[in-house]
Amino acid sequence: MPQSPTSSVLGEFEVVVLLAVLHVVERGDVAYGSSVRDEIESRASRPAARGAVYITLDRLEEKGLLVSRQAAGPVVRGNRPRRLFRITADGLRGLRQSLSVVARMQSGLELILGDLS
């Protein structure tokens, strides 16, 4: 049963994964485990454990922030399906909430924190 997006605050890695899914989809690619992981590693310049990515994707789906569907992949997968993710409206709302909390907490600290981008 998907939980209400407001019922729990998103964790840092959950925000990262949601953003990665958005980036992949925005680029016009399909978001599945490997592509989401590659996106995190290339943008955040940090390694992400494959297991952690999959488990977070599962959890976000359980919370109703993502939906997934099975789709056929290239031949090299040996007929194993790809699990493609898409962000839901709740997911987008939750992501905005989490990011705005961070933005509000961050405001006024620019001198100390410097340019974060």
Binding site: G33, S34, R50, V76, R77, R80, R82
Partner: peptide, 16 residues
């Protein structure tokens, strides 16, 4: 089982 199949597919793709 369903997760195992898709993860295995991802691994195969990356392996290639």
């Amino acid at each position: 089982p369903d997760r195992a199949a898709s993860v295995a597919g991802d691994l195969l793709e990356d392996f290639d």
